[in-house]
Each structure stands twice: as structure tokens, then as C-alpha cells.
């Protein structure tokens, strides 16, 4: 097991380097550069100004030496410096990471637990009204664009009912501390986490339901029934556990997007997270910052792929971790 993990990590680092090189060139294919963007925003800019900016961004260096410099700093575990924001990239990402992890983590847990719960309920009552209601709802959330759901949720819960705040991480300037602050953050978290979680919840519902229905027709379930086990035990220990594999695969995929996957939600709810940082860096062509976010989120994907493989084994001991 330890050898497996070590080999996977070594491979992962190579993949990460390849991703860095690829992204480095990919983002430079987009028209414009950070110097022009800043000159543009200033509403003024002569050649001297743009040249000064290019020098500041090290854009006056030839491309290969820019890449070499970047790779050198990455290998030294340094994500570089964002000239635009006047801060080290690692600091910028570090500042935003907790907010994003709180949002995506909550959405992940809520969608996974609700999705599996509702999915198994629907499977158990297949064909009944409850099943139709659950699958209908899942289909609706699956098909509705996130952006629209977010805006509608704001209109309903923030504007009409005035139950929940519509933007931000916490009430600015309220000076809450301790539990009051936590409660305030939770109130801000509800809408974005729910809208972000709904889509994945719908996917888990559908996946769990169909997978459980498939498993429930297998011979060992008949055997379990013949043994006289209660329906609850059969559902939980025999059907659900065997039906979980595809759900775990999907959960692994969702976990991989924990860092960079909430751009829309973070934008609509003004949530100060990584997704927005990345989106803004893209529009501003802040190459170092953008690459930094890419590195961190690809590292997350690699880590969660590894975790998924290990979890597979826990869920289904028949699976040998590939050598």
C-alpha cells in the first residue's frame, strides 16, 4: 500500500509538471497581456507606460526563459509573485482557500449525503409517488443552470423573504466574534452551498437509485432474503454497499473540483474564494496567479484521484490496488 501511494505521488508530480508547461503556453495563446490590460484600465497609457509594465511583469524576456524561470520557482515550491496584486501568489491563494473549501466542502457533504439518502429511498420505493417526486426533483436540478438557480434563490430568499443575506462571506463591520460570527458565516453560506450542491445532489440521487436497483436484482440479494435478513439490513449492507462504487467514482470527481469548481457560485454570491480569483486572473491575464491556481487545483485533482482509489478498496475489498 505504501509503495503504491509513493509511486502514485511520483507519477503525480510528473503529471503536474506537464500540466504546468501546457498551461503556461495555453494561457499565452489568449490575446492580450497583463500590461495591456492594466494600461487599458487606466484609460491612458503611452508607450513608456506599457513598456514599464511589460518589464515589471518580465514579459520583455523571451518565452523559454520565462518558462524556465517559472519552472525553477515551482520546483522550489514557490508559486511566484503577482505583479498586478503586488503580493506573492501563495499568499493570495492561501487567503482565499479557506472560504472556497468551506463552500465547496459543505456543498460536497450536503450533496453526497442527501443524494445517497434520497437515491436509496427512491430505489426502495421504486415506482411509487415518493420515487417519482424524488427523481422528478433530481431531474429538475440536474437540468437547471446553476447561474439561474442562484439568482432565483437570491430573489426569493434575500429580496422577497429577507431571510438570508445575498452576498459576501460575513456581515462586514458587524464585529461579531466567536459563535455569533460562526452563525453569521453559516447564514451567508446557506444559499451558495445549496445552489452549488443541488446539481451534484441530483447526480448522486440518479446514480444511487439506478445502481441500487441493478444490484437488488442480483442473486446474493435473493440469498440474503432467503436467509431471513430484515429488509433494512439487506438494503444497507448488501445493496447499498455494493451499489456505492459508481457513487464513489463520482464523488472523487466532485472532490477534485473542490478548489476551482465554484466560479459561478462565488461570482453570483460575491464569495471571496479561489474560483473568483482564477476568473479575475484570467480576465486580467495575470499569468502567475492563474498558473498558481491551476497548479493548486490540479494538485487537488491528483490527490483526490489517489484518495478515491484507496477508498475503492475500503468499500470493495475485492478491488486490488493496481500495481
Amino acid at each position: 500500500m505504501a509503495g503504491f501511494v509513493a509511486r502514485r505521488i511520483a507519477k503525480g508530480i510528473l503529471v503536474l509538471l506537464a500540466i504546468v508547461v501546457l498551461n503556461f503556453f495555453l494561457i499565452r495563446l489568449a490575446p492580450g497581456d497583463p500590461a495591456l490590460v492594466m494600461a487599458g484600465e487606466a484609460g491612458a497609457g503611452d508607450e513608456v507606460f506599457v513598456a514599464q509594465l511589460r518589464e515589471k511583469f518580465a514579459l520583455d524576456q523571451p518565452l523559454p526563459s520565462q518558462l524556465a524561470a517559472y519552472l525553477r520557482s515551482i520546483v522550489g515550491l514557490d508559486l511566484g509573485y503577482s505583479v498586478r496584486q503586488q503580493m506573492p501568489v501563495a499568499t493570495l491563494i492561501g487567503e482565499r482557500l479557506p472560504a472556497t473549501l468551506l463552500l465547496t466542502g459543505t456543498a460536497f457533504l450536503v450533496s453526497l449525503s442527501l443524494g445517497v439518502l434520497l437515491g436509496s429511498l427512491a430505489a426502495r420505493r421504486a415506482g411509487t409517488l415518493a420515487d417519482t417526486a424524488i427523481t422528478g426533483m433530481a431531474l429538475l436540478f440536474y437540468a437547471t443552470p446553476l447561474f439561474w438557480v442562484s439568482l432565483m434563490a437570491i430573489i426569493l430568499f434575500s429580496v422577497r423573504l429577507e431571510w438570508l443575506p445575498s452576498f459576501g462571506f460575513e456581515t462586514v463591520g458587524a464585529g461579531y466574534t466567536g459563535l455569533a460570527r460562526a452563525a453569521d458565516i453559516v447564514r451567508h453560506l446557506v444559499l451558495p452551498a445549496l445552489t452549488l450542491g443541488l446539481f451534484f445532489m441530483a447526480v448522486y440521487v440518479r446514480m444511487t437509485r439506478s445502481s441500487m436497483l441493478e444490484v437488488s436484482r442480483l442473486d446474493f440479494v435473493k440469498t440474503a432474503r432467503a436467509k431471513g435478513l430484515t429488509e433494512g439490513v439487506i438494503q444497507r449492507r448488501h445493496i447499498l454497499r455494493n451499489a456505492l462504487l459508481p457513487v464513489v467514482t463520482l464523488a472523487g470527481l466532485q472532490a477534485g473540483t473542490l478548489v476551482g469548481g465554484a466560479v459561478l457560485t462565488e461570482t453570483v454570491f460575491a464569495w471571496p474564494g479561489i474560483g473568483r480569483l482564477m476568473y479575475e486572473a484570467l480576465l486580467q491575464r495575470d499569468y502567475n496567479l492563474l498558473l498558481g491556481v491551476f497548479v493548486v487545483s490540479s494538485a487537488m485533482v491528483l490527490i483526490f484521484n489517489l484518495v478515491t482509489d484507496v477508498v475503492y478498496r475500503a468499500v470493495d475489498p475485492r478491488i486490488e490496488v493496481a500495481r
Binding site: L151, I154, I155, S158, V159, E162, P165, S166, F167, G168, V172, G173, T267, V268, F269, A270, P272, R276, E280
Partner: peptide
């Protein structure tokens, strides 16, 4: 006493922030 400048990236959300008195 103080000025808070709120960063709200989405235009519709900015409108809502004004509507709701934030």
C-alpha cells in the same frame, strides 16, 4: 466614521445589494 467598499463581482448581485439595503 468609516467607509466600506464592497467587492461584488456580479452586476445583478450589486443591484440586489442596494435593493436589500446592504
Amino acid at each position: 466614521d468609516e467607509i466600506y467598499w464592497h467587492v461584488i463581482p456580479d452586476a445583478a448581485a450589486r443591484a440586489v445589494a442596494f435593493e436589500t439595503g446592504k
